[in-house]
């Protein structure tokens, strides 16, 4: 021992305590209890591994595993192919964008559609690739179409009201071999 005795009494007490080692009477009980606990823990682990085997054991079957690998590769390839198609479509559509004086269009989509329909009905064709037209120009175009329609109706009424004028116009049209107008 490295210590120097503090006192005789202290040393005496220490000696007595040192000599009276605590006795473990139930070594067998402890041994049994320890073995039981370890066995129980082992059984629990076994039970858990059985459950895991039951749920996921099939992944260890050779042909299932190979099929899963093949299926996953096919899925990945399909996904990549689908993505490339989508990208191509996006790219194609982005090239079809209507640019109006390089400004953002604030007009609602259905109104633009309506305008384009009128434009189409007017007998003209769209340029093959892009249309560069401002919102103002579009409005002017629509207004002129409307005005033209009104004037056409007025003219029609006028012709209907005057049979002589009607005959004269028909005659002139035939003479000039112009496009047939169904009055």
């Amino acid at each position: 021992m490295t210590m120097k005795p503090e006192s005789e009494k202290y040393n005496k007490v220490l000696n007595i305590l040192r000599n009276s080692k605590p006795l473990l009477n139930s070594t067998e009980d402890i041994e049994r209890e320890v073995i039981n606990k370890i066995a129980r823990a082992h059984q629990n682990r076994l039970y858990l591994s059985k459950v895991i085997d039951f749920l996921f054991g099939w992944v260890y079957i050779g042909w299932v595993r190979r099929s899963l690998i093949t299926a996953s590769i096919i899925l990945v390839l399909v996904f990549v192919y689908q993505q490339s198609i989508i990208l191509k479509r996006i790219d194609f559509l982005s090239r079809q964008t209507v640019i109006i004086d390089r400004e953002n269009v604030s007009t609602p989509a259905d109104e633009i559609e309506k305008m384009l329909l009128i434009y189409k009905n007017s007998g003209r064709r769209f340029p093959s690739k892009t249309i560069t037209i401002s919102e103002k120009q579009m409005k002017e175009l629509l207004e002129s179409v409307n005005e033209l329609q009104i004037k056409y109706k007025d003219l029609e009424n006028l012709i209907e009201g005057d049979p002589e004028l009607k005959k004269l116009i028909e005659k002139k049209l035939i003479e000039s071999n112009r496009t047939r107008i169904n009055l």
Binding site: K12, V13, N15, I16, L17, N19, S20, P22, L23
Partner: peptide
Amino acid sequence: RLSEGPSADLENKETAQIISLL
């Protein structure tokens, strides 16, 4: 109990009491 000297054979309970006190 301690006055009995080093031959004093303490029971677990007594040992516990002494250690606890000290």
